[in-house]
C-alpha cells in the first residue's frame, strides 16, 4: 500500500515541479500577508512578539488553503482520480499519498517563510527545535484535514469558495494548538509547548485515521 502512496507522491512532486503552481502561489501569498501584517500592525512602533504566533499561523493557514484547493484539481481533470481508484490495492492509499504530498509542499513553504516572518515583523528568532516540532505537527493536522476536505469540495461547482468554509471550523483545534505551542516555544516555556504539542498530535491522529477509513467509500462512483 505504501508503494501506491509513494507513487502518488512522486507523481505530485513531478507535476508540481513542472507547474510550480502550488508552491509559488502559496509562497508568494503568505509572504504578501506578512508584508500586509507589517503595515497593519507596524513592527517599528510596536513589539509584535506577543501576537507573532497568531500572525504567522493565520498567514500559513490562509495561504495553504490556496494550495489545497489545487490538490484535487489535477485529479479531477481527465478523470485521473478514477484511474487511481481502478488501480489494485487499498484505495485509502490515495488519501495517504495526496496527504503526504501536500504535507511536503506545505512544510517546504513554512521552512522558507518562517525566517522571513521573523525578519519582516522584527521579532527575534526563538524557539529552535521546539518550533520545528510545532511546524511539523500542526502542518500534519492542517494538511490531513485539508486534503480530505479538498477531495470533498472538488466534487462541487464552488470548490474554491467552499474549501475554506468547510476547513476552518474543523481546523480550530489546530489553530489554537499551533498558536499556543508556538508562543510556548518562543517564550522558552517547554512545558506549555509540549502540552500543546500533545494536543496537536492527538488531533493529527484523528484527522489522519478517520479520513483514511472513510476515503475509500467516497471514491466510488
Amino acid at each position: 500500500m505504501l508503494a501506491k502512496s509513494m507513487a502518488i507522491v512522486w507523481k505530485d512532486v513531478v507535476v508540481e515541479f513542472r507547474a510550480k503552481e502550488i508552491l509559488a502561489a502559496v509562497l508568494i501569498f503568505a509572504a504578501l500577508v506578512a508584508l500586509i501584517f507589517g503595515f497593519a500592525f507596524d513592527p517599528v512602533e510596536h513589539d509584535l512578539t506577543g501576537i507573532f504566533p497568531g500572525l504567522m499561523w493565520v498567514a500559513y493557514f490562509f495561504a495553504g488553503t490556496l494550495g489545497l484547493n489545487r490538490s484535487f484539481i489535477t485529479e479531477k481533470q481527465n478523470d485521473a482520480l478514477q484511474g487511481l481508484v481502478l488501480a489494485p490495492g487499498d484505495r485509502s492509499a490515495i488519501f495517504l499519498g495526496k496527504f503526504l504530498a501536500n504535507w511536503l509542499f506545505m512544510t517546504l513553504v513554512e521552512l522558507i517563510l518562517t525566517p522571513v516572518f521573523f525578519a519582516l515583523l522584527n521579532v527575534s528568532f526563538k524557539g529552535g527545535l521546539l518550533l520545528a516540532a510545532v511546524l511539523a505537527l500542526a502542518t500534519v493536522g492542517f494538511t490531513a484535514a485539508g486534503t480530505f476536505l479538498s477531495g470533498l469540495a472538488a466534487n462541487t461547482r464552488a470548490s474554491e469558495v467552499l474549501l475554506p468554509i468547510l476547513l476552518f471550523p474543523l481546523l480550530v483545534p489546530v489553530v489554537i494548538g499551533a498558536v499556543r505551542a508556538t508562543a510556548g516555544a518562543m517564550a522558552g516555556d517547554a512545558a506549555t509547548a509540549v502540552a500543546w504539542l500533545r494536543a496537536l498530535a492527538a488531533y493529527d491522529a484523528v484527522f489522519v485515521v478517520v479520513p483514511f477509513l472513510v476515503f475509500e467509500y467516497l471514491l466510488e462512483g
Binding site: A145, F148, L149, L152, N155, T156, L166, L170, F207, V210, P211, V214, F215, Y217, L218, E220, G221
Partner: peptide, 11 residues
Amino acid sequence: RARMAAGLGVI
C-alpha cells in the same frame, strides 16, 4: 453528492 456529504457528516 450524497457520498461527499456523508464524509463531511462523519468527520
